[in-house]
Design a protein around this nucleic acid. Structure first.
Lengths: 225, 225
DNA sequence: CTGACTTTGTGCATCGGTTCACAAAGGGAT
DNA sequence: ATCCCTTTGTGAACCGATGCACAAAGTCAG
């Protein structure tokens, strides 16, 4: 907060934030195996990045390593967790209990490490009342009330594309400011609200692009016009 | 179109490639609504990006717009599809038919627009033989044979983390060079193989980071979307 | 045909992120 | 304590992506 040079500067680069969960996963794995300290070289290769990048990333959080030794695994787990806000308990709601919603409710990363599925909603009376991952599916009518009652602060949208914007508007109106969107639509939200999207078909299309390029070889005779 | 001054440069920036599917989706939507031409401004806002970026992205594919008018929707759909390799038919295999695998098999983006789920595999005898999205689930033992027989070139991994690397090795040995990985592990592959990963819990953790900052920070950084 | 108007395509400045490479810092041995 | 070895943390160069702002290219009306 004072000098702009080294302290725990609050301005952590977005690219770094996106990699912290990666480091965290590798560290958890190492902790389970009883590894006490790890060098930037080893941690980087476990996380699939290069070691200079890892060191620069970690340097944004503070100076938690020991020169000549490496990083203490437990300590680093704690520091990264704290930075990401995983030392608190986040109540997550999933809206849209189709195949995807069900998958998410059972997904390991959702039920541990700071997150807890606190509510699930669907519009289909056939699905409402089902128990999934030990939790009851509620009707979408109960959305606002349940969000407030359970202190939900992050909502996962797994609805059909056509329903996503409407549900989004409702959860925003209910005070939610973080949304993870799986529906293939561009959501419109006030800029106080954070939306991250995951679009599976986009990833597939990027793969197809590269695959096509490989198949065509170094000489690409493409233009048919 | 083959002018040496502005050739269809084969070096399309990665960031551009990642956005093309976004433009494509917006264009498909417009085509359905009978919109014949669209300006960069309108298309950009439908895709959720800024218009200068959109124009620069499209300029990497060629000069497909008309000044003073905009872009022909159908024509642009075709050009982007061709660039992404979606004018051909990609046979995709899904390995791991748990909740997530099932969701993917039924996912709209997987069964249209150039992609076709050609095979599904699981290790659980309970699941093998089930029909999902009109297709039979085969035993993992049949992996290599079925991949070759059906001409599968892209494999989607939706297995538990512990099984992912082994399955990955097998599909790579069978000649697959594009993998979409949903398992939370860092896969090791020869560098001729393309891996893209989707980790749902990472996205959630990034949201938590920003949410925490909103809630707690004495200084609120403006965050852009 | 001319002139007003619209919208593309791009040169350029800028910004954020990556990588290199090394001085600084610490541990351990003697 | 001193020296050697290892590994961090970071300055600086580099690289790709972004966004501005405008000339060029086209449409359309009269």
């Amino acid at each position: 907060m004072k000098s702009p040079s080294h302290p725990r500067d609050r301005g952590i680069p977005e690219a770094t934030v996106a990699r912290l969960p990666l480091y965290l996963r590798a560290l958890h794995l190492m902790a389970e195996r009883g590894i006490a300290t790890v060098s930037s070289e080893d941690l980087a290769s476990a996380a699939g990045v290069n070691s200079a990048k890892l060191r620069k990333d970690l340097s944004h959080l503070g100076s938690y390593g020991t020169r000549g030794v490496g990083y203490d695994v437990e300590y680093l787990v704690y520091q990264i967790s704290r930075e990401l806000g995983l030392t608190q308990d986040w109540a997550v709601a999933i809206v849209g209990i189709g195949n995807l919603g069900r998958a998410l409710a059972n997904y390991g990363g959702f039920v541990s490490r700071g997150f807890r599925v606190a509510a699930m909603f669907d519009a289909d009376p056939e699905v409402v009342g089902d128990t999934i991952a030990g939790l009851n599916v509620e009707h979408i009518d109960a959305l606002e009330a349940a969000i407030k009652r359970r202190g939900v602060s992050i909502v996962v949208l797994a609805t059909p594309a056509a329903a996503a914007q409407e549900v989004c508007d409702r959860v925003v109106a209910a005070g939610v400011t973080s949304i993870l969107n799986f529906a293939p639509v561009v959501l419109t939200v006030p800029d106080t609200v954070d939306v991250r999207k995951v679009d599976l078909s986009i990833e597939l299309q990027i793969l197809a692009f590269h695959e096509q390029r490989k198949a065509g070889g170094p000489l690409m005779a493409v233009d048919t016009q």
